[in-house]
Write a protein that binds this DNA or RNA. Sequence first.
RNA 1: UGGGGUAUGGCCAAAUGGUAAGGCAUCUGGUUUUGGUCCAGUGUAUUGGGGGUUCGAGUCCCUCUACCCCAUCCA
Length: 756
Amino acid sequence: MSKRFIMHKSKDFLRKIVEEDLKSGKYKEVVTRFPPEPNGFPHIGHAKSISLNFGIAREYGGRCHLRMDDTNPTTEDTQYVEAIKDAVKWLGFEWDGPVRYTSDYFAKLYDYAAELIKMQKAYVDSLSEDEIREYRGTVTQPGRRSKYADRSVEENLDLFERMKNGEFQDGAHVLRAKIDMASPNMKMRDPLLYRIRHAHHFRAGDAWAIYPMYDFAHCLSDYIEGVTHSLCTLEFENNREIYDWVIETLQLKPPRPYQYEFARLNINYTVMSKRKLLELVEKGVVSGWDDPRLPTIAGYKRRGYTPESILNFCEMIGVAKANSVVDVSQLEYAIRDDLNKKVPRVMCVLDPLKITIENYEGYEEIDASYYPHDVPKEGSRKLPFSKEIYIDREDFMENPEKGYFRLTPEQPVRLKHAYIIRCKEVVKDADGNIVEIKAEYYPESKSGSDTSGIKVKSAIQWVEATSARKIEVRLYDRLFKNEAPQGIEDINPDSLKVIKDALVEPAVIEEKADERFQFERVGYFYADPVDYTDEAPVFNKIVALKDSWAKKKKAPETTAKAAPKKVHTEGETAPMSEAEQVLFDRYTKELKLNSEVANTLARDQKLSSFFEEALRSYHESVTVANIVTNEVARELKNKEISALQFQPGQIAELAKMVDEETISTKIAKQVFEEMSKSGEDPAKIVEAKGLVQISDPDVIVPIIDEIIAKNPDNVAKYRNGNTRLLGFFVGQVLKNTGGKANPKVVNELVTKALSS
RNA sequence: UGGGGUAUGGCCAAAUGGUAAGGCAUCUGGUUUUGGUCCAGUGUAUUGGGGGUUCGAGUCCCUCUACCCCAUCCA
């Protein structure tokens, strides 16, 4: 069993949220959804989302819906719906219930919009598109509200209905939410809810003249379906505020869904955007949406990737919120790892070089297992053998370089599953090209019954000349030559190499042990599902085998890669105002605060006034200042002083307990947590929880001894100079005492105990 | 520039204030009739920088920097 299964896999942030929500009873069951817009072919980025949404539902015994987000009739089409359904199924998931469509909810959505109008939270705006843009303002300047924003409920309702009935031209009116034209979040500046679109919808037909916008439709569709966790990518972070606004404003009955965002998938040497993918297809750079070089699901499928490998890949890379670019080698690893334990090994010669074994007469069939010793699968085929065979041109070198293990004029080699041969003569044509090798074999060296005693460095693949089948092999390489390709200009000209006359052993075509094979020593290949016929077989290269020989040969080039040194520029802090300066001076001079603490306090009006207040009840200022600067500051980040649970006087009390060493600073943090939740007096909290610190060595020393006895390895490491481990021992003692041991004392005692 | 995010070895990515996990990649051995697999080993990681609080900071506070997203009647 490999390490991967033993390893404890820590949960990603989304799974933690789901677990927490289930535990707290916020929801009885988790419901997720995969909500693509059917306007393009799904790619591996979608696979990540599919794996997440369906995966979470499966793991936590919930449901996952498949919903087509079809609110824009001009871009969407049923062919994409089919492609998306195929992708989900291919990856091995089943959606709960039927495929859902946002367009199924158009009527309900319309009613919700009317509701908003009645609440005076939405209005019909008749500004032109340009005016709307202009009125919206910019990121630094607030927008202005439209003069139509004050229309009466009746007028709005009437207009909205007539919009629906198709009485107006496209663009004549829109429905907007009435929120805040000055919001720092641009998305909240009276976002559009509906637009007029006299267009044929691939499902709804011509029933509607108005279509809801994403921000209005998505949250409500989630709500309608009972979705609990609405997972989307990072670029929707700004939209979350509207998501919540719509649901809250409509006062929908709980439970309601919440949106969470994660980073979308990027892979180097790959483009993922619909636009760029489309360009490649339309300009004929690739053969279609299922071109094996494309990161589309259809492409991977045609290339021969397995769904398991893609799912494993998604799991391996994890989910987080940092924009990142995954190394394509991680994907390649996933497919190799999967295929290695699954597919039969066969022999294929890409670039045939004829070998005539002069001392062999006749014909035989060699029994050869499809699987190597380390793959626990059964199965074998017959390998024809005669005096004429082909090996790969790469496996012979007349003037071998150092470290070359294969056939040379001096070096024998084993024909995999068969005999050891030796080169006798190199036959060349008029131009000096090698056209044939005359060789001899060692009769007693047959695989499995070798008594020759000859040592060879390598066993190579080969095919028998008369029985070998000619196949077409399509060798795919990465589509782009740049790590971060921009577009067509970065295309790798060698991304597809077609070999028309490769030779493969007959069993591959005749027995069909599988659709995927490992061509020994070359890579994994897949019978092309479109172009393959038994008469003209076509194989796609899925991925090469790792090749440490090729790497070694290439190695010398890759020396000059200067480590990019991080240049760091230091910005300037804004100067203090006069009043702040006065405070700062007083704090540093009179109260002897260090300049950093004084600085933080002086610059923050809320903090300093809280501090001043606390000072009134306790003049020993440094601890108070520290607690205010470091702990209270956190609470005050998004809050006013009046919203605080605790009073300045209570903080003073807390500081006093620390100064008197009743409690440690560690405990003080814990007490503070409690205070900020309950507003309870610190003394009461300490008493109720028995948090008074333990400083008595007679209590602490036995605990230390016990821990030292239990961790001989770490003791040795520590004594060997790893003094960082002091923290480990102190931590253990504190854990043992419920955090109550006086850490300063523990520190001293541990140090002493360990050095004795 | 307003707002919202993000920053941990080459690439992903973990870590209730207490020994900086794991995977990929790399390199080195061992096994091997695949230069594959497998096994073992391999990294002084300034946890973006600087300061502060603390016995102890990747984690708390302040500050700076870099990158991403938002001004479609797209999603």
